[in-house]
């Protein structure tokens, strides 16, 4: 069952996150509006892929990132500003923060635990979270970069 409110809310908060995190890298003002739009579309794409198509986080993020990359090229050309200033900040709301946090948490537990079964369980948690986090970030970067190389003007 597709719930439009959830998708819109997801996009809305992704847009706020996109604008806020983009502001840290001081983009031109016109690019900020594009960042908001692309963040919302990218994150909503990922949300739909995960919740309605059952995709894994990493591949859903790849889809969201490709969406951002493909749209960033024409938008950047339109407002005459560098593609990376539109595409990279829009990716930031998709950073898998919970996985990163759980990795750190598992690392501490690993170092504290002494008994083998507990240690192995925490090691499993650590590797699970680190792998998910790394692959998601890598696929996000690749997904957003490929369109800028393919669609480049010669």
């Amino acid at each position: 069952m597709i719930n439009m409110t959830d998708i819109l809310l997801d996009g809305f908060f992704a847009a706020i996150a996109g604008v806020g995190f983009a502001s840290i890298s001081n983009p031109p003002r016109k690019a900020l509006a594009v960042c908001a739009l692309l963040s919302a579309l990218g994150h909503a794409t990922r949300f739909c892929m995960m919740n309605y198509a059952g995709a894994h986080l990493a591949f859903a993020s790849l889809a969201g990132a490709v969406m951002i990359g493909v749209l960033a090229v024409p938008f950047a050309r339109r407002i005459e500003c560098p593609v990376e200033a539109c595409a990279l900040p829009s990716l930031l709301p998709m950073v898998p923060g919970m996985y990163a946090y759980r990795s750190v948490q598992a690392l501490i537990l690993c170092l504290q635990g002494s008994e083998e079964t507990i240690f192995m369980h925490n090691l499993y948690l650590l590797s699970y979270n680190v792998l998910n986090c790394l692959f998601t970030i890598l696929l996000m970067g690749v997904g957003a970069s490929i369109p800028t190389f393919v669609m480049r003007k010669r």
Binding site: L9, F13, I16, A17, V19, G20, S23, I24, P93, G97
Partner: peptide, 14 residues
């Protein structure tokens, strides 16, 4: 203020 709201939105997304 913007970064504050951005991170709060991030919290919603998680």
């Amino acid at each position: 203020v913007l970064v504050g709201f951005a991170n709060a939105s991030f919290c919603y997304l998680f």
